[in-house]
Amino acid sequence: MEKVIRRLAGAFVTISVILGYFMSPYWFLFTLFVGLNLFQSSFTNWCLAEQILAKVGIGVEKEADSQSNSLS
């Protein structure tokens, strides 16, 4: 799940910087939002994107498999 979150955040930052440069500087606010979310999640261990991805079912199976392998 952590790799998925990092890839998603990296993609969002890259896309919003490109859009901010070529389309409108207001896109940099989205970059700021992603950065602030990463910052707060480092302190609180809570990430909205992680909850959304878990509900969709992304990253859940791999996490369950790695936990079962570590128990045996």
Rank of each mutant, 00 (worst) to 15 (best):
G10P: 07
I52A: 11
E63R: 09
E2F: 02
S42M: 08
G35F: 14
G35R: 06
F33N: 01
L19F: 15
R6K: 10
L29H: 11
A54N: 11
R7H: 05
M23W: 15
F43Q: 08
E61D: 10
T44Q: 06
L29N: 07
L48R: 08
L19T: 10
E63A: 10
F43D: 00
R7D: 04
S66G: 01
W46C: 02
L48M: 15
N69D: 11
S16Q: 02
N37I: 09
I52V: 14
M23L: 15
F33H: 02
I15Y: 11
F33V: 07
F39E: 03
Y26R: 05
L53M: 12
S72W: 08
V17C: 15
I15M: 11
T14V: 15
S72L: 08
V34A: 11
Y26N: 03
F43S: 07
G20R: 00
K55H: 09
Y21A: 14
F22C: 04
V56L: 13
M1T: 01
Q40F: 15
V17Y: 14
Y21H: 13
A49D: 07
S24Q: 06
T31L: 08
L32T: 10
E50H: 15
I18C: 11
S68K: 14
L53R: 02
G10A: 12
W27V: 00
K62I: 04
C47L: 05
E61A: 13
K62W: 07
S41I: 01
F12G: 05
Y21C: 12
R6P: 00
K3C: 02
F39D: 05
T14Y: 00
L8W: 05
E61F: 03
F22R: 09
F12N: 06
S41Q: 04
R6Q: 04
E50V: 12
S16M: 07
N37L: 11
S24Y: 09
I5F: 04
F33T: 04
F22W: 13
M1H: 12
V17W: 13
A9C: 12
L48I: 15
E2M: 02
S66H: 08
N37V: 10
G10D: 13
V17P: 09
I5K: 12
G20Y: 01
F22V: 11
L8G: 02
Q51K: 10
W27I: 00
T14K: 02
F22S: 01
L48K: 11
V34P: 06
E50T: 14
N45W: 11
S70A: 15
N45A: 05
A49W: 07
V17N: 13
F22D: 00
A54I: 05
I18N: 00
S70K: 15
S16W: 02
S70C: 11
G20M: 01
I15C: 10
L38M: 04
L38K: 00
E2K: 03
S66D: 09
W27Y: 15
V4D: 06
G59P: 01
T44Y: 10
D65M: 05
W27D: 00
A9H: 09
V56N: 00
T31N: 06
R6D: 03
M1D: 03
G57N: 09
L38W: 01
L8C: 03
V13M: 15
T31S: 13
A54W: 09
M23G: 11
M1K: 05
I18F: 04
N69R: 14
L48C: 13
V34F: 09
A11R: 05
S72F: 08
Q40K: 14
